[in-house]
Amino acid sequence: MKFDDEPVPGYSLPILPGHVSPGRLERVLRAGKFAITSEIDPPDSADPAEVLKRAAIFDGYVDAINATDGSGANCHMSSAGVCSLLTRVGYATILQISCRDRNRIAMQGEILGGAAMGACNLLCLTGDGVQAGDHPQAKPVFDLDSISLLQVARNMRDEQRFESGRRIETPPRIFLGAAENPFVPPLDWRPLRLAKKVAAGAQFIQTQYCFDIERLRDFMLKVNDLGLLEGPDRVFILPGIGPLASARSARWIRENVPGVHIPDAVIARLEGAKNQKEEGKRLCMDLLNEIREIPGVSGAHIMAYRQEHSVAEIIEATGVLEGRVPWYPGRDDPKALNPESPEALSL
């Protein structure tokens, strides 16, 4: 899909009627296209070129790139830093804010700063506990939770108010997202909890890794019954998927990464394969093919940690973009920026 006002890198697009943000992700979703998002693992480095290199891997395959915020409670370059670098060359980004590390003063400042830099999608997260990461000695903050953060962010945008009530001159034009995990207890509460997130302001949802299609189907049925996929305040759901590297790594993830549910059958399938890595990719493709058939699903979020190059392969093999080539620097003008060159940064 091509928009005739397709962007000058670093500048926001006009906001279409009925939209809240100038971003391409909202446009693609509201146009009813199957959207693909993926995520960058921010570098342990202050090198901007490293960020652009990691983003370029997804060129032409994703509609927006999540920049994780200390994922797994490990320290990396900040999400706002990564987003700022990427929006300068025109990428659509999803800024992640986790409640673990900052209080409401810092978070609201970050929302304004991010929006000013063109990061017009915001994913509000609770965040993994500090015990999961490389700084278990850190102070967990959790001044807000993901739902109160959503509400604060929505009020900043729609009421032009900080949580304190103080007025904001130019509100952040942001498309608001949240995460959900339909695969862990209490399973019967999860759809209703999603409703609460939508009531607090969530407009798109990226889920935790899905390896259990039945649970997802169940969840989507209930979400649909709750009427969350209709009307102007509807929510767009992008289930999370990703390739598993091997049966061993699947077991490790199941034991050590909070909230990832991997059924035994999945591990058995990997174990039975000659080439486990290839099988992991094929499994991911199969999941994607099944997910796109589930009524109410609006896209998919592909998390291919340390296998980022496989994202293109997975998308090609499944054809989910239906011939669309999402914008990337140089798509329309091959002479334009090579994001790996230093000039890309001097905009």
Partner: peptide, 26 residues
């Protein structure tokens, strides 16, 4: 442990126990 006031985080273990304190029910 995360002082959440709006419902469970996404880290609840399969047996319903807490992500941060595995010995405790969420």
């Amino acid at each position: 442990p995360k002082t959440l006031r709006n419902g469970p985080c996404g880290g609840v273990r399969a047996d319903g126990h807490c992500e941060v304190k595995p010995e405790m029910m969420c």
